[in-house]
Design a protein around this nucleic acid. Structure first.
Length: 422
RNA sequence: GUGAGCGUAGCUCAGCUGGUGGUAGCUCCGGAUUGUGGCUCCGGUGGUCGUGGGUUCAAGUCCCAUCGCUCACCCCA
């Protein structure tokens, strides 16, 4: 084969797609229960939208975006995350005036030019939620409970870690305390030396045991946030308790995007290779205003769909399989004609029906029916046509019954429907 | 961007210190005294050994380059 898919871009083929459908159906059902509305937004935006929202000095903006010039020269970018686009749409469509609190979700592909590895692709998919127009801590807890419920209903487990990053009033004080501490720290690893300059908060997340040892005495952001942020965090924890969602506070947790304020959280697992987060999010009060919209608070999260799929595929039998209802076995030209019409009528009546159009042997067709794992086979050959009875076989228990052939296939199909769907 | 490992049928892989790639397994197709299934048995389809150079009498095997994949670092969903 000459042309292959791009590095980090994957086809989701039959056999894999069922897992994806299960994930999406489960999530949509839960979004509905929380009364969220779906929003669909473009995957291509003006570059400055992401630069403004995600932050100029983040890795995503600095080196991971698919950015290129449009024919007229303007700079376009394939979205690396969903929040910016959804907020842009919220502002552009004046959604704040339609509902004081907008609860939105969207599902789709994101693009980041990174080196692919387990759980990380260049085109990946997220389901994401954005709640705009409220900063009640109980909303934060409810959002986390929603993410938690999705995992639970998928049959997965992960740990919820939460933190508060403070607000634009109190974070600078913490940054200063942290920089003072880091200035005095010795023998930091190369990565930490670099991060100390680019993103001091991230230093605390270092995996080096030696660094971590020193950071035990590092200032904790939770000791530096202002009273209002502390109260908020306290109320968020109370909310999680009320909803019986287990969590752990991780004051070292940092998010990769600049816009987060106050509550941040991650759903982590150790079953994804080097990747740990299946979902993550946080509050971003001020971001909507920063993008030119009304000054409304917001909170959201995203879940990585290939990571969810990876976890589900590790658990045998965790994805329900939908098998066809009926295999119409037709032997000989006369039966084939009848079966052909009946199969279509059955589909119109609501049955998932298949048939072998090549008129192969009974044995062969039964073999196909077995492989397709259909629930029933309707067997119809010359004998059946002549005596007006076809054989309906329950494939699971091998019980057979004779049923009358109805010349009106539409009526026959509805009769079959009631026999097959119980 | 950095590092390591790996490229032999659609998939999973044998192939030793170079000496003619395997009736290989799975899938797929056909058949097993011609009207009853996922198992079993038999047969069949299917390969530029990633690509290009080099060494050699001889390269799937050794060397170089290149492309691709995988995993990890970084970072993140």
């Amino acid at each position: 084969m000459s042309v292959k898919a791009l590095k980090g871009f994957k086809d989701i083929v039959p056999g894999e797609v069922e897992t994806w459908q299960f994930i999406e159906q489960t999530a949509r059902a839960i979004f509905h229960r929380f009364n969220l509305d779906e929003i669909k937004v473009p995957i291509l935006e003006k570059t400055k939208l992401f630069v403004r929202s995600i932050g100029e000095t983040t890795d995503i903006v600095e080196k991971e975006m698919y950015t290129f010039a449009d024919r007229n020269g303007s700079s376009l970018t394939m979205r690396p995350e969903g929040t910016a686009s959804v907020l842009r749409a919220y502002i552009e469509n004046g959604l704040q005036s339609k509902k004081a609190v907008q609860k939105l979700y969207t599902i789709g592909p994101m693009f980041r030019h990174e080196r692919p590895q387990k759980g990380r692709l260049r085109q990946f998919h997220q389901m994401s939620v954005e709640i705009l127009g409220t900063d009640l801590p109980r909303v934060d807890a409810e959002v986390m409970a929603m993410a938690w419920l999705i995992l639970k209903e998928l049959g997965l487990s992960a740990s919820l870690e939460i933190n508060s990053l403070g607000c634009k009033k109190c974070r600078p004080a913490f940054n200063k305390a942290l920089l003072d501490f880091l200035g005095k720290a010795e023998n930091l690893c190369d990565d930490c030396l670099r991060r100390r300059e680019t993103n001091p908060l991230r230093v605390l997340d270092c995996k080096s045991a030696h660094c971590q040892e020193q950071y035990e005495k590092a200032p904790s952001i939770l000791d530096h946030i202002c009273q209002s942020c502390a109260d908020h965090f306290q109320a968020v924890k109370k909310g999680l308790d009320l909803l019986a969602v287990p969590y752990a506070v991780n004051s070292f947790m940092v998010r990769g995007l600049d816009y987060y304020t106050r509550t941040t959280f991650e759903l982590v697992t150790d079953a994804l290779g080097a990747q740990s987060a299946v979902g993550a999010g946080g509050r971003y009060d001020g971001l909507v205003a920063q993008l030119g919209g009304p000054d409304v608070p917001g909170i959201g999260f995203a879940m990585g769909m290939e990571r969810l799929a990876l976890l589900l595929d590790q658990q045998e039998g965790s994805v329900p399989v939908a098998t066809p209802d009926l295999f119409v076995v037709a032997l000989g030209e006369a039966a084939q004609e009848k079966g052909y019409a009946l199969t279509h009528a059955a589909r119109k009546a609501g049955l998932a029906a298949i048939m072998d159009l090549q008129d192969r042997s009974l044995k062969n067709q039964m073999k196909q029916a077995g492989k397709a794992m259909v629930r029933f086979a309707l067997i119809m050959g010359e004998d059946e046509l002549s005596n007006g009875k076809a054989v309906l076989r329950n494939m699971a228990n091998r019980e057979q019954q004779d049923i009358s052939i109805n010349d009106d296939v539409a009526t026959w199909a509805t009769e079959l429907y009631s026999l097959v769907i119980q």
